[in-house]
Amino acid sequence: VDNKFNKEQQNAFYEILHLPNLNEEQRNAFIQSLKDDPSQSANLLAEAKKLNDAQA
């Protein structure tokens, strides 16, 4: 993981990586967004979790 991520951002990265119901395309999009703007990690994680739950 890129060293410019802080602890919260790293946690978001790993959580998104391991959400079971996202397809690869969705997962990659969230990860790319996280890399583009790490400050949005909490929002991105919340969105990813919502999508993950919706696809459960």
Rank of each mutant, 00 (worst) to 15 (best):
residue 1 V to F: 05
residue 1 V to S: 11
residue 1 V to Y: 02
residue 1 V to Q: 07
residue 2 D to V: 02
residue 2 D to F: 02
residue 3 N to D: 15
residue 3 N to M: 01
residue 3 N to K: 04
residue 3 N to T: 09
residue 4 K to A: 12
residue 4 K to I: 15
residue 4 K to G: 14
residue 4 K to Y: 10
residue 5 F to A: 07
residue 5 F to R: 06
residue 5 F to I: 10
residue 5 F to V: 10
residue 5 F to D: 10
residue 5 F to M: 09
residue 6 N to R: 01
residue 6 N to Y: 02
residue 7 K to P: 15
residue 7 K to E: 08
residue 7 K to W: 05
residue 7 K to L: 04
residue 8 E to G: 04
residue 8 E to K: 02
residue 8 E to Q: 03
residue 9 Q to L: 10
residue 9 Q to C: 08
residue 9 Q to H: 03
residue 9 Q to F: 08
residue 9 Q to D: 04
residue 10 Q to W: 14
residue 10 Q to H: 03
residue 11 N to S: 13
residue 11 N to H: 14
residue 11 N to Y: 15
residue 11 N to C: 14
residue 12 A to G: 02
residue 12 A to C: 07
residue 12 A to F: 05
residue 13 F to H: 07
residue 13 F to K: 06
residue 13 F to P: 01
residue 14 Y to I: 07
residue 14 Y to P: 01
residue 14 Y to W: 12
residue 14 Y to C: 10
residue 14 Y to F: 11
residue 15 E to F: 14
residue 16 I to L: 13
residue 16 I to M: 09
residue 16 I to W: 01
residue 16 I to Q: 00
residue 16 I to T: 01
residue 17 L to I: 06
residue 18 H to C: 07
residue 18 H to E: 08
residue 18 H to S: 14
residue 18 H to R: 15
residue 18 H to W: 12
residue 18 H to D: 06
residue 19 L to V: 01
residue 20 P to Q: 08
residue 20 P to E: 10
residue 20 P to S: 07
residue 21 N to M: 07
residue 21 N to G: 06
residue 21 N to D: 08
residue 21 N to S: 09
residue 21 N to T: 05
residue 22 L to I: 11
residue 22 L to T: 00
residue 23 N to K: 13
residue 23 N to E: 06
residue 23 N to I: 12
residue 23 N to Y: 04
residue 24 E to T: 04
residue 24 E to V: 11
residue 24 E to L: 09
residue 24 E to M: 09
residue 24 E to P: 07
residue 24 E to Y: 11
residue 25 E to T: 04
residue 25 E to G: 10
residue 25 E to I: 13
residue 26 Q to N: 03
residue 26 Q to V: 06
residue 26 Q to P: 00
residue 26 Q to L: 02
residue 26 Q to K: 05
residue 27 R to H: 03
residue 27 R to D: 00
residue 27 R to Q: 05
residue 27 R to C: 04
residue 27 R to Y: 01
residue 28 N to W: 15
residue 28 N to I: 13
residue 28 N to A: 13
residue 28 N to F: 15
residue 28 N to V: 06
residue 28 N to S: 14
residue 29 A to E: 04
residue 29 A to L: 05
residue 30 F to I: 02
residue 30 F to P: 00
residue 30 F to V: 01
residue 30 F to D: 00
residue 30 F to T: 01
residue 31 I to K: 03
residue 31 I to F: 10
residue 31 I to V: 04
residue 31 I to T: 13
residue 32 Q to D: 05
residue 32 Q to Y: 15
residue 33 S to L: 04
residue 33 S to K: 14
residue 34 L to W: 10
residue 34 L to D: 00
residue 34 L to R: 00
residue 35 K to R: 14
residue 35 K to W: 12
residue 35 K to D: 04
residue 35 K to P: 01
residue 36 D to W: 14
residue 36 D to Y: 08
residue 36 D to M: 13
residue 36 D to C: 14
residue 37 D to H: 11
residue 37 D to M: 08
residue 37 D to Q: 09
residue 37 D to V: 09
residue 37 D to T: 10
residue 37 D to Y: 07
residue 37 D to G: 08
residue 38 P to A: 07
residue 38 P to G: 06
residue 38 P to C: 03
residue 38 P to S: 06
residue 38 P to Y: 02
residue 39 S to K: 09
residue 39 S to D: 09
residue 39 S to W: 09
residue 39 S to A: 04
residue 39 S to N: 12
residue 40 Q to H: 10
residue 40 Q to E: 09
residue 40 Q to Y: 10
residue 40 Q to C: 08
residue 41 S to R: 04
residue 41 S to I: 12
residue 41 S to D: 03
residue 41 S to Y: 15
residue 41 S to L: 11
residue 42 A to S: 07
residue 42 A to I: 08
residue 42 A to F: 15
residue 42 A to N: 10
residue 43 N to H: 10
residue 43 N to D: 07
residue 43 N to G: 05
residue 43 N to W: 15
residue 43 N to V: 13
residue 44 L to P: 01
residue 44 L to D: 01
residue 44 L to I: 08
residue 44 L to E: 01
residue 45 L to C: 06
residue 45 L to P: 00
residue 45 L to D: 00
residue 46 A to C: 10
residue 46 A to L: 13
residue 46 A to F: 14
residue 47 E to T: 13
residue 47 E to I: 15
residue 48 A to H: 00
residue 48 A to D: 00
residue 48 A to C: 05
residue 48 A to S: 08
residue 48 A to R: 00
residue 48 A to Y: 03
residue 49 K to R: 10
residue 49 K to W: 15
residue 49 K to Y: 15
residue 50 K to R: 11
residue 50 K to E: 13
residue 50 K to Q: 12
residue 50 K to M: 12
residue 50 K to I: 08
residue 50 K to H: 07
residue 51 L to Y: 09
residue 51 L to K: 07
residue 51 L to H: 08
residue 51 L to G: 01
residue 51 L to A: 11
residue 52 N to A: 06
residue 52 N to Q: 03
residue 52 N to H: 02
residue 52 N to C: 04
residue 53 D to G: 11
residue 53 D to F: 15
residue 54 A to F: 13
residue 54 A to I: 13
residue 55 Q to M: 10
residue 55 Q to E: 11
residue 55 Q to H: 06
residue 56 A to V: 09
residue 56 A to G: 13
residue 56 A to I: 12
residue 56 A to E: 13
